[in-house]
C-alpha cells in the first residue's frame, strides 16, 4: 500500500533549481534510504515532504491526501499555518543537529508535542514519553537537560520525540553525521529496531553499509533528480548509473 507518493516535485531557491522533478513512492512499512553527493537536494526533498519548505511544482500525497497546497479553479495556494501544522504532525523528522529544545529535559522534549499538539492529559503524555525514552534506552536520563547528554543520547531523545507523535512516516536527515564515530552505532541500532517493527522511514544517510543492510530500497540522488533506485542489495552490488558507481567507489563500501 502506497503511503507517500511524490510526483514531479520541483523546488527552486532563487535562480537555482534544486529539485528538478522528483518522483518517488514509499509503501507502508518500507524503509527507503537516500544517498547522493552533498548538494544533490536530499535535505531539501525531506524538508518539502515535512512542509518545512514550500515547493514550486508537482505534488506530495501522504496517505491519499495531497499536502501543503490547495488547488482551486486552476490556482495553487499554500495552506494556512494551522492546516500546515496539522499535516506536519503526520510526519516525524529527525535532524542532523538534533535540535532538541535546550530548556526542556529529555522527558519535556518528548512530552511537548503530546501535550500541545495531541492535547493529551499530563499523566498520559508522561507515561507515553517515558515509554519511548525507554525504547531508545534512555529511561534513566529522562530528567536530564540536553546539555547534560552525549550527542548519541541527544539524537536518541530526538528520535523518541519524533516517534512519540505516532507519525505515519519518519524522515531522518543524516542523523549520525554530527556524532563522534563511537556514538554512531547506538543511534543506528535504534533505527534498525524501528525498521524491524515496521516503521515507515525515509532515511538520508552517508552510512552506506547501514543503507545497504537496513533499507529495503535505496535512492541515488544526483543534481536534484533521482538518478537510480532499486532494492538496496542490488543497487550496491550492481550499480548501473556511472555517477553512482563513482559515488560508491569514493564512499568505498
Amino acid at each position: 500500500m502506497t503511503l507517500l507518493s511524490i510526483r514531479g516535485l520541483t523546488k527552486r531557491f532563487g535562480a537555482a533549481e534544486v529539485l528538478k522533478g522528483v518522483d518517488l513512492e514509499v509503501n507502508k512499512g518500507e524503509v527507503v534510504s537516500i544517498i547522493g553527493a552533498s548538494g544533490s537536494g536530499k535535505t531539501t526533498l525531506l524538508r518539502c515532504v515535512n512542509l518545512l519548505e514550500d515547493f514550486d511544482g508537482g505534488e506530495i500525497v501522504l496517505d491519499d491526501v495531497a499536502i501543503g497546497y490547495v488547488k482551486r479553479n486552476g490556482t495553487r495556494r499554500r495552506l494556512g499555518e494551522r492546516e500546515l501544522a496539522r499535516q506536519r504532525a503526520m510526519t516525524g523528522m529527525v535532524f542532523q543537529s538534533f535540535n532538541l529544545f535546550p530548556h526542556l529535559t529529555a522527558l519535556g522534549n518528548v512530552m511537548l508535542g503530546l501535550l500541545k499538539v495531541r492535547h493529551m492529559a499530563k499523566a498520559e503524555a508522561k507515561t507515553l514519553a517515558m515509554n519511548w525514552l525507554s525504547r531508545v534506552g534512555l529511561s534513566d536520563r529522562a530528567m536530564h537537560l540536553p546539555s547534560q547528554l552525549s550527542g548519541g543520547q541527544q539524537q536518541r531523545v530526538a528520535i523518541a520525540r519524533a516517534l512519540a507523535m505516532d507519525p505515519k512516516l519518519v524522515l531522518l536527515d543524516e542523523i549520525t553525521s554530527a556524532l563522534d564515530p563511537e556514538l554512531v552505532g547506538e543511534v543506528l541500532d535504534t533505527i534498525k529496531s524501528l525498521a524491524k517493527e515496521g516503521t515507515t522511514m525515509l532515511i538520508v544517510t552517508h552510512e552506506m553499509r547501514f543503507a545497504r543492510d537496513v533499507a529495503h530500497r535505496t535512492i541515488f540522488m544526483d543534481g536534484g533528480l533521482i538518478a537510480e533506485q532499486g532494492p538496496s542489495a542490488k543497487l550496491f552490488r550492481n550499480p548501473g548509473n556511472a555517477r553512482l558507481k563513482e559515488f560508491l567507489k569514493r564512499a568505498n563500501i
Partner: peptide, 22 residues
C-alpha cells in the same frame, strides 16, 4: 538557531505555540 523552529514545526506546533513554548 533556526533548527529550533524546524524541530517545533516538525512535531506539528503552530507558530503562536512555538513562540510560547520554544
Amino acid at each position: 538557531p533556526p533548527g529550533q523552529i524546524d524541530a517545533a514545526r516538525a512535531i506539528g506546533l503552530t507558530f503562536p505555540r512555538i513562540l510560547a513554548y520554544v
